[in-house]
Amino acid sequence: MEKAFTLVVVREEMKVDYVSYFVKGEANYWWESARALEEEKAITGDSKKIFLDMYFLRYMQTQMELKFFELKKEGMTVGEYEKKFTKLARFVGDYVDIDEKRAKRFQQGLKPWLRSRVFAF
């Protein structure tokens, strides 16, 4: 939203309304509760930080986890697949925290004929 505010001129007193239009689901319920508790209609540094910590960071984490678990080598070289696998693996912690788990998950994304060859190693 901050990025959007740099492109579109939004008066300070309208920012809460602008932001609340875009939040959905559980995040919207939290936002409405937090806003009802605020005496003035402005985004405070504390409420903004809590909101980001609770929802956007969690949302992004979840999206990266989904991308990781859906990752397949299809259409990529093994090198490209490994690069993307490594990039996304940092978001899934316990699933790839030891080499054995990491290798098993890596193999699961390979095509069956290639998986069987890699499994031998």
Results as ranks from 00 to 15, higher is better:
residue 22 F to T: 14
residue 55 Y to G: 07
residue 83 K to R: 06
residue 49 K to H: 04
residue 48 K to N: 11
residue 9 V to D: 14
residue 48 K to R: 13
residue 63 Q to D: 14
residue 108 Q to F: 10
residue 71 L to Q: 03
residue 26 E to T: 11
residue 111 K to P: 04
residue 46 D to E: 15
residue 82 E to H: 06
residue 4 A to H: 14
residue 29 Y to G: 10
residue 7 L to S: 10
residue 39 E to T: 15
residue 102 R to Q: 04
residue 63 Q to A: 11
residue 95 Y to W: 14
residue 16 V to Y: 00
residue 22 F to R: 13
residue 7 L to M: 12
residue 21 Y to M: 14
residue 115 R to A: 06
residue 9 V to N: 14
residue 13 E to Y: 02
residue 54 M to A: 09
residue 113 W to Y: 10
residue 110 L to V: 11
residue 2 E to P: 03
residue 87 K to T: 14
residue 70 E to P: 03
residue 110 L to W: 06
residue 95 Y to G: 05
residue 20 S to P: 00
residue 33 S to W: 06
residue 57 L to I: 13
residue 99 D to R: 08
residue 73 K to S: 11
residue 18 Y to I: 06
residue 92 V to H: 02
residue 61 Q to G: 01
residue 68 F to M: 01
residue 74 E to I: 12
residue 32 E to Q: 15
residue 105 R to L: 15
residue 115 R to Q: 04
residue 115 R to W: 02
residue 105 R to Y: 11
residue 42 A to D: 07
residue 78 V to C: 09
residue 18 Y to D: 11
residue 108 Q to M: 14
residue 110 L to R: 04
residue 42 A to N: 10
residue 55 Y to S: 03
residue 1 M to V: 04
residue 104 K to H: 08
residue 101 K to H: 11
residue 59 Y to A: 03
residue 56 F to V: 13
residue 39 E to R: 15
residue 68 F to N: 00
residue 53 D to Y: 05
residue 11 R to V: 08
residue 95 Y to K: 14
residue 87 K to N: 09
residue 111 K to I: 12
residue 24 K to G: 05
residue 54 M to K: 04
residue 50 I to V: 15
residue 61 Q to W: 01
residue 10 V to A: 10
residue 24 K to M: 02
residue 83 K to T: 04
residue 43 I to L: 02
residue 101 K to G: 06
residue 46 D to A: 12
residue 78 V to W: 06
residue 6 T to P: 05
residue 10 V to P: 09
residue 24 K to Q: 14
residue 25 G to H: 11
residue 79 G to C: 07
residue 78 V to D: 02
residue 37 L to A: 15
residue 113 W to E: 07
residue 18 Y to E: 07
residue 5 F to R: 12
residue 5 F to S: 08
residue 93 G to P: 07
residue 35 R to G: 00
residue 28 N to I: 01
residue 39 E to A: 08
residue 52 L to D: 12
residue 112 P to Y: 00
residue 121 F to A: 06
residue 82 E to C: 14
residue 20 S to V: 01
residue 116 S to Y: 06
residue 55 Y to N: 02
residue 42 A to R: 15
residue 44 T to G: 12
residue 44 T to E: 09
residue 65 E to P: 08
residue 39 E to Y: 10
residue 94 D to C: 10
residue 30 W to C: 10
residue 31 W to Y: 05
residue 102 R to S: 05
residue 58 R to T: 15
residue 11 R to G: 11
residue 72 K to D: 01
residue 99 D to Y: 05
residue 6 T to C: 12
residue 53 D to S: 12
residue 57 L to W: 03
residue 78 V to N: 04
residue 33 S to C: 11
residue 49 K to M: 03
residue 77 T to R: 00
residue 65 E to A: 10
residue 36 A to R: 15
residue 16 V to R: 08
